[in-house]
Design a protein around this nucleic acid. Structure first.
Lengths: 196, 196, 196, 196
DNA sequence: AATGAATGAGCATTCATTCAT
DNA sequence: TATGAATGAATGCTCATTCAT
């Protein structure tokens, strides 16, 4: 039951997240300073510690947020089949990336690197997305449309990895690839490969 | 040791690279300390600066080394077709990763993250591999066996990204995937999708 | 100690300046270590960086401080003529030097050497003194008592150089000269030479 | 008894001194690297240590060299009086400075700063010049032309300080003073003040 | 909750100097 | 005498984090 003060706290928290997105987009994860994010949000250096334990925790919140948008935006439509659903998830992800390409670049590039040192935190941050995909793929396998080559959860993680990889290429400065090409490539390289 | 011969200098350099591989494998790229690598190699703190300007430069040398092994190990066999050659490259890469899985994990995880801040250095380090793949894919497209969906260089980079992504999953502690599964998955999730 | 009052911040700053004076006097500018000054002031290594960007900046603050004392202590007395005013400025400067001869030695010796690498900073630090002297000399020239050989500002700088040079000699260990001799020598060597 | 090899040694030594002059002129005393001087002279890093113990020792050699030129160039002419001889010494010094103004700036600026840490070395380097001036001034005092205000040696050192100070101003980028003005100013600000 | 001065572990980097050859 | 790889003391500097107010 949120009280007034709680919603104020939420607003402050949001201000930190917004400032962090800008800082991360501009300076990268390593280059961004926790202090600066707090100052950029209009607060004192130490205030941000009342909301986020570390810079990484704040970063994972942004990843969670991304994942949350993906899950919230997805409208299941089992009737159209798992392949269509996977395509839709890819399309949604690209849409999210398109909103803030600079931030998307940072998120996509840094998540793998953090996996080694913050394995569980990364896993937790992307869990909703992985779960969503796991469900879709499991259903596809059950219906016989998707190949049973590996466990649904494994394929779900590979889907995210592949999708991220293609987006990364599309977001690179010197690439001829465009975000508009991503869904088609996911279809061609991943989805069709899973067709039995 | 003055008046050192060139080969001795090379040997010293190798000792730093070996020590770095161990340090990077144990502590990750961010966690490894440049000075420590020098000490671990049996030299004084400052000696490593005579060989590598920065920790990242040393890391890129390791990436280059990896790439060099790939290119050196590859025996072109145009007669068997581009697909077989791509499969062979994937197989070689897995073999290299298998030699030192801990290091492989670091290399695969950290390269994307460095791409943003050290774009050109990363590109230079993996250039031989990208060039090799570009050639194979271009030949495949010319022969009509591979689809012409994107420029050979773009597809080459996507191949590496996809391959790395699958290896990353296979190297993860909690994955049911194995390095032995990688080539088959590359075949299914990338190569077959490129077949026209 | 957060929420510190402005005066407390000023007090901390003063403690650094005092510690720096001691360190500079004991070890010279090059020999003094920035971190040590912070520790000597009773603070942690890094605290001094919140107050002064570099060791040189701290040194210039001390030079400024010196100059400030000179300007603050000077009571203009145009009625007595420019020569008397110049003598008074020399007397004041000697008095300041007498308070801490070891520091005076460092300041006087190091300022010329820093002029090459930190030209503007040096100029800014001594500007009030130069301005004061420029005014006195310009008035003297206007009244016809001082020779018009060079621009007032040039002569002001030469006055400071000459004064410093004599003080340097007086402060040297092996000199027969004394700080008490300085004003007379300035009179004899500089002021009387400017008399038309 | 110099042998052939000795003269070769002298030539090598000269090459280091020449290279040092360039380096000091370009980067200042603190900024110049001992290594670089050796390399710039066309030798290996360590070779310079066979000729000069430290960077400062090399610098003092240059100061000695300067002083040597002054003493060598001076033609005593007691008949014209001490004042004329002092003027001649000032003229000679300016001439030497004019040959390499950038080096002159460094020498003039850095000598005072070194006096504190290398007192005896500085004294030794400039001893011939001080002795020369001491003789001239002592003769002037003996003949009754120069005031007896202080010991000849003290006045000799003050002469050098004053002369350097005026040259420093003349060598400064933003000064209206010129090296051509120096002798006149020395006359006006020092010599005439010593007249009894 | 907010503040922001203080902290100090941690890391990079330089470069004069040595010395085996 | 010349070499130049190796050395490591010395030092600078950052910035996440704490905590008294």
């Amino acid at each position: 039951m949120p009280r007034i003060t709680t919603s104020e706290r939420g607003a402050t928290r949001s201000r930190f997240i917004d400032a962090a997105k800008t800082e991360f987009a501009e300076r990268g994860l390593a280059g961004a300073r926790f202090d600066e994010i707090s100052l950029a949000a209009g607060h004192a250096k130490g205030t941000i510690y009342n909301y986020f334990a570390t810079k990484e925790a704040l970063f994972f919140t942004i990843v969670e947020d991304w994942c949350g948008q993906l899950v919230a935006g997805f409208v299941p439509n089992p009737g159209e089949g798992a392949e269509a659903e996977l395509r839709e998830i890819a399309r949604l992800d690209v849409e999210i990336a398109r909103k803030d390409p600079a931030l998307a670049r940072v998120v996509i590039n840094q998540v793998p690197g953090l996996a080694s040192s913050h394995d569980e935190a990364v896993a937790a941050a992307i869990a909703p997305g992985v779960n969503l995909l796991t469900g879709v793929i499991a259903a596809g396998q059950a219906s016989g449309l998707l190949a049973n080559v590996h466990a649904p959860r494994t394929l779900a993680r590979l889907f995210l990895t592949t999708l991220s990889g293609i987006e990364q290429e599309a977001l690179a400065d010197d690439s001829e690839l465009d975000l508009d090409d991503v869904v088609n490539l996911v279809e061609r390289l991943f989805i069709s490969g899973l067709r039995r």
